[in-house]
């Protein structure tokens, strides 16, 4: 089987798995998702996938790797708005909001599947349950943003970092990409700082404090949880906002 077809099938299965993680798809829905035309691309670390102001004609499904949404300020300051894992479509909003109001970049090498808007629009038009699932995804997106706003506005630097590490642990675990006590997080201190709104220097102090407190070790692109309950307590992390519960059978 040619590699491109193989990677396209893998991408479709990634999407089907994601859509079924909290809802049920009928056979017809699943087949319709599998019929979506995908263009699979491998992107190097650091590349912009779509930029603030762009008018994209396709959405990007993360097949593997880590993607962030961000906003650039005058003087090159950057605020990372969210992280996105395999199975997610971080620019789903571009289906209905024509002009991007932020950018999307590959934090690690990323395999992405691009889905033309026309095909996605036809899918949500003909398969209401798929449309409902995608709508739900954008609502969860908003719930995560709300939690980040609380953090940026009211949590200490240490709580913000701890909270983000808890969130990512739970999200990586939900897609089978985290062990019981560790997961791979190949982000730089600068990227962590840009996500939680603190300087590099504070990130490095906070990571040392978290390690010295026996809570979590962040080193060499790996996060190792030493005391999960302590980390949760410190950051007041409550995973409800991720809405990861499985549907009623």
């Amino acid at each position: 089987m040619p590699r491109t077809i193989e990677s396209s099938i893998a991408a479709h299965e990634r999407l089907v798995t994601k859509l079924e993680s909290d809802s049920r798809l009928s056979d017809e829905d699943r087949e319709a998702v599998r019929q979506l035309p995908f263009t699979v691309k491998d992107l190097p670390r650091g590349v912009d996938i779509v930029r603030d102001g762009d008018r994209p004609a396709e959405c990007c499904l993360v097949v593997s790797g880590l993607v962030c949404r961000y906003k650039l300020l005058l003087g090159g300051k950057r605020q990372i708005l969210s992280f996105h894992l395999a199975g997610e479509i971080p620019d789903l909003q571009s289906l209905f909001l024509k002009r991007m109001d932020h950018s999307l970049a590959a934090i690690t090498p990323v395999r992405a599947a691009f889905i033309p808007h026309a095909a996605l629009r036809a899918l949500v038009g003909s398969r209401p349950s798929v449309a409902a699932i995608l709508w739900r995804e954008t609502l969860i997106d908003a719930a995560i943003f709300r939690e980040w706003i609380v953090g940026l506005g009211r949590r200490t630097a240490m709580q913000r970092v701890a909270h983000l590490l808890c969130e990512l642990a739970v999200r990586f675990r939900a897609v089978g990409l985290a062990g019981d006590h560790h997961y791979t997080l190949p982000v730089t201190q600068s990227e962590l700082g840009d996500a939680v709104g603190i300087s590099n220097i504070h990130v490095s102090r906070v990571l040392r404090d978290l390690r010295d407190a026996g809570l979590v070790l962040v080193s060499g692109g790996t996060v190792t949880t030493l005391n999960w309950d302590g980390l949760v307590e410190l950051s007041e992390f409550d995973p409800d906002y991720l809405h990861l519960t499985r549907p009623e059978p």
Partner: peptide, 27 residues
């Protein structure tokens, strides 16, 4: 900045008041 930082030996704006209250704090 102490040895625990990649930028050890440089000076960090620990706190800035008024017009010097900027984010992120420069090195």
């Amino acid at each position: 900045l102490s040895d625990e930082h990649a930028e050890a030996g440089k000076w960090f704006l620990e706190a800035g008041f008024g017009k010097l209250n900027v984010r992120p704090e420069p090195v």
